[in-house]
Design a protein around this nucleic acid. Structure first.
Lengths: 137, 137
DNA sequence: TCAAACTGCGGGTATATGCACGTATCTATG
DNA sequence: CATAGATACGTGCATATACCCGCAGTTTGA
């Protein structure tokens, strides 16, 4: 079976496509799906440090640091120093909260599209498999 | 169901993990899974233009152009001008062919691991779903 | 034949992502 | 209390990825 096309490449390809779908849906807000996800995490867990946020998002800390810089420049979140002066505590600005709120229906729409297209069963299969992939290392 | 976590983010996360697995396996060769995939395509279809290769890989042409530059710098492929002087025709060098050959067993190993871990059925489900995602736009 | 339309690329711009390294800060121990 | 070790970040480096624009070479239609 290993002669089949690379599972990794197939996954990457699908990820690009799916990302572009979500990105297109959120485009009216001027943010992409990664940024939307990050903002929602900050809304939910903020004020939160970069390290903790990176853990939640399962991304490298430095990646999160750079990604937040973009959102900070956009005025969607602020970075404050905590009691521990090393910590960069992230919080949403009013604009950031607004974007998350405005984005919800847009995100719901794409998410719903995907669910309709794939159906509940295959969707469950997908998440089950993805989960396996992530927990195997 | 839309309250579940974002399908796109889940896919991206799994893609990062899986990519790093493949990358680790190919690390002895000094290339990553994307580069390995590209080299194999060039071996199979070369000499091939950037535009055609981009189509095969389902990547943006400029992305492929940049990615090939890295491999060219590594001495794994060469860029020649075709009859149509605009075309950049890609071919593997001897070193490139060697890398593809040496990489085959390494790639087989990871690919096989994944297949063992997921099992044939779930693997078929995965590809079926990924295929759907890609063809829906 | 000659200009218009088309095509193939390169480069600029921007984000995403991870690793390695350096700096500032905190903490625990002698 | 001073210092070694741990922790939180930032930055440099490298690749991945896409979009847009402009240049140059090609093809085509009048």
């Amino acid at each position: 079976m290993s002669n089949a096309s690379c599972h990794c490449i197939a996954l990457r390809k699908a990820t690009r496509k799916l990302s572009s779908l979500y990105d297109a849906a959120l485009a009216p807000l001027g943010i992409n799906v990664g940024q939307f996800s990050l903002l929602r995490r900050v809304r939910r867990f903020g004020p939160v440090s970069l390290t903790d946020l990176a853990e939640y998002l399962d991304l490298d800390r430095s990646t999160v640091g750079r990604n937040t810089k973009v959102l900070e420049r956009m005025g969607l979140l602020t970075v404050a120093t905590g009691r521990d002066q090393r910590e960069a505590l992230l919080s949403l600005t009013d604009a950031g909260r607004q974007v998350v709120e405005d984005g919800a229906p847009l995100w719901d729409a794409v998410q719903g599209n995907i669910e309709t297209r794939l159906g509940a069963e295959r969707l469950a299969q997908l998440h089950d498999i993805l989960n396996d992939i992530q927990t195997d290392c």
